[in-house]
Design a binder for these strands. Structure first.
Length: 402
DNA sequence: CGCTGCGGGTTTT
DNA sequence: AAAACCCGCAGCG
């Protein structure tokens, strides 16, 4: 049954996404279509059951990038690269920054790195323990992404809908890391303090507003992924990465949950009815991370719908992405937030259509979102969104700040 | 140091 | 057999 639901979603996605051309193929097919008429734009936040065909020249596609924290998974098939989602690291205290944003850090891809991070990191905002919110968007298991190179195309297929907020992007995480490193170097003795300071800058005191947006997201505005909805409530989360500060979550901080003490908030209730069958695989340990700020991306509405083949230049995502970004449509159920990324590109209107920009509410934009009126939300159209879009400028300019 | 890809191996369904 | 996952190794930036 659960499966049925997924299938349905999938079908819908298919037709919606490749509008016009029906994506009849499956990543596991012996032969994939080579008469592709339209290539898709690279999507940094692919979600739900989608399929995409990128140009083999698309740098991001070549690197199998994703803004979600995806780790390689051995599927014993050298022709198809499989990656599974690691989820997102959240504050165990469910704290919010001064401007009401939540902290969503990117879990390290490498197991070892995750452990390291956990040891000395804590919430950049409240200094509390961090908790790994694992992804269970695919029948109780992490969302999986598949990549396959065939001829001049790179086929991409994702299975499952992320049931957690978006983590910071790779660029952001890297920036954060370097900043921390630098700071640590300066004052080894008071790392904690420093961190606090950093946090402050992050949360509010930052000079550049753009900069901040990074890891925080506004609760109100932030929409969770389709599956995500039920989540925040109590916790059943993963272990919690504490480690750091040892400090137990503040009592009050947690808010509602009275007790559990642990990370209160996040729990994933079965978001739709589709809960995994039974148990969730007990997944591993959580990983702690903590970090500091990072640059954000903002994309400027490029508007142009350039050909898919991005020539991207140097940066990770920027190229292709365009205006889209947010898949904001979370309002729609599962497929909703699909990546609707592309607003209106020349291509198929991706799932975009499905998303009527829901209310005026800003979509959920992760941390960076400008959360503030003005440009930010307003546009769904676009402005800020995913990483790709960000220009280097933006991103890089920020770095210095940290 | 961390990301990424590969591939052997195990466990569960 | 398929899928999820663990682990180590190697290349790369």
């Amino acid at each position: 049954m659960l499966k049925g639901a997924d299938d349905v979603v999938m079908e819908q996605e298919d037709s919606a996404s490749q509008h016009g051309e029906i994506t009849s193929w499956d990543i596991n097919d012996i032969k994939l279509p080579q008469d592709v008429r339209q290539i898709d734009w690279f999507q940094e936040w692919p979600d739900s059951y989608i399929k995409r065909i990128y140009s083999s020249e698309d740098k991001n596609a070549q690197k199998h990038h994703s803004s979600w924290a995806m780790r390689n998974t051995n599927n014993h098939n050298s022709r198809i690269l499989k990656k599974s989602c690691l989820g997102v690291v959240v504050c165990g205290n469910d704290c919010s920054t001064l401007d009401g944003r939540k902290i969503y850090l990117r879990p390290a891809i490498c197991d070892k790195a995750r452990q390291n991070n956990s040891v000395r990191k804590c919430c950049p905002n409240c200094n509390g323990p961090l908790q790994l919110l694992s992804c269970r968007g695919h029948g109780g298991y992490p969302v999986t992404n598949f990549w396959r190179h065939e001829g001049q195309f790179i086929f991409f297929q994702s299975k499952g809908a992320h049931d957690h907020p978006r983590p910071e992007t790779k660029i952001e995480a890297e920036a954060r890391r370097s900043v921390q490193k630098a700071q640590t170097a300066f004052s080894p003795s008071y790392p904690r303090l420093k961190r606090i300071q950093e946090t402050e800058s992050l949360t509010g005191a930052m000079p550049t507003q753009k900069a901040l947006p990074l890891l925080l997201s506004k609760p109100d505005a932030y929409m969770l992924p389709a599956n995500f909805r039920g989540y925040l409530s109590k916790s059943s989360r993963e272990p919690m990465l504490d480690s750091c500060c040892g400090r137990p979550p503040y009592p009050g901080a947690a808010g509602e949950d009275g007790g559990s003490g642990e990370a209160s908030t996040w729990s994933r209730s079965p978001a739709f009815g589709r809960t995994p069958s039974a148990g969730r695989p007990g997944r591993g340990p959580a990983i702690p991370l903590c970090a500091a700020p990072s640059p954000q991306h903002c994309a400027h509405p490029g508007t142009q719908h350039v050909p898919p083949v991005t020539k991207s230049s140097h940066h990770p995502f920027r190229p292709s992405a365009g205006p889209f970004g947010d898949e904001s449509c979370e309002e729609n159920p599962p497929l909703a937030h699909s990546s609707s990324g592309l607003p209106l590109p020349p291509y198929p209107a991706p799932e975009g259509s499905p998303c009527p920009r829901a209310s005026g509410a800003p979509h959920h934009r992760p941390f960076w979102a400008p959360a503030r009126g003005s440009g930010g939300e307003g546009g769904e159209g676009g402005c800020c969104m995913g990483l790709s879009h960000c220009n280097d400028d933006t991103a890089f300019n920020l770095y210095p700040l940290w």
